[in-house]
């Protein structure tokens, strides 16, 4: 039997919104330690890895590991039926071919349940190597979203260049060019407004705007985003979920011809 109850059900709605652009279907791996999901998009350019720790749920029971393969478009349809202040419970029997979502209003006066068919997905699990990154940038997630949105008006790609002084985002296209520079700025009133750069050596990498914009669907999940970069390895864009886990995206850089 698997059962996970989240009083802050809106969080689950936001997690789904943050991945459904990139993935049509994925397997939620449920274990005693929590729920995880790892999947590449169909073109194998980006990878989503997320983890929701069991202790972040208000009730969590997982007698044995279960893999819940879901069509995420269908899951999103069901999640839209939950209000933002609903308590959400996910339930599945061992070896079941369906999953049940229960939505309760805070006053318990309305309880809805939706049963969804599971899919048998041929999921291959990937080992993600530990990497010492040349540059790690922490910045406000809304700022990153804004920059990705603005520069995608200019071109298809964004060059992210990081030095000790700051980080620069650049785009070029038929209409001209755009550059956004952010200086390191740790002395701010609110921690979430800080721009912090940990640099071993400067890097400059090119990434597709389309994917970066998809990643920023996770913005409502965290006030800060962390970008980890090294030459010729995938960019990691991480949103930490408070007391719960993370949503991470990996993106292969564009290569100079």
């Amino acid at each position: 039997m698997f059962e996970a109850r989240l009083v802050q059900g809106a969080l689950l709605k936001k997690v789904l919104e943050s991945i459904k652009d990139l993935l049509n279907e994925a397997t939620w791996e449920c274990a005693a330690t929590g729920i995880s999901l790892q999947a590449m998009d169909s073109s194998h350019v980006s990878l989503v890895a997320l983890n929701l720790r069991s202790d972040g749920f208000d009730k969590y029971r997982c007698d044995r590991n279960v893999s819940l393969g879901m069509n995420l478009t269908n899951m999103a349809k069901i999640m839209k039926c939950a209000s933002n202040d609903d308590v959400i419970t996910i339930k599945a029997q061992d070896d079941a071919d369906t999953v049940t979502f229960v939505f309760e209003t805070p006053n318990q006066e309305k309880i809805s349940d939706y049963e969804m068919k599971l899919m048998n997905l041929d999921t291959e699990h990937l080992g993600i190597p530990d990497t010492d990154y040349s540059c790690i940038v922490k910045m406000p997630s809304v700022e990153f979203q804004r920059i990705c949105r603005d520069l995608s008006q200019i071109g298809d790609s964004v060059v992210i260049s990081c030095t000790k002084e700051g980080v620069k985002f650049s785009a070029a296209g038929d209409l001209g060019t755009g550059n956004v520079k952010l200086a390191q700025n740790a002395n701010v009133d609110k921690e979430e407004e800080a721009v912090v750069i940990e640099m071993q050596e400067p890097v400059s990498l090119t990434f597709a705007c389309r994917y970066l914009n998809s990643f920023t669907k996770a913005t409502p999940l965290a006030p800060q985003v962390q970008l980890s970069m090294s030459s010729d390895v995938p960019l990691v864009v991480e949103y930490k979920l408070e007391d719960m886990g993370y949503v991470r995206y990996y993106l292969a850089p564009k290569i100079e011809d």
Binding site: S46, L126, I128, P129, K254
Partner: peptide, 14 residues
């Protein structure tokens, strides 16, 4: 110009 790289090869299939 640039071409989009892929993730295959960066991660090992377990």
């Amino acid at each position: 110009s640039t071409t989009q790289g892929r993730l295959d090869g960066f991660f090992k299939v377990l």
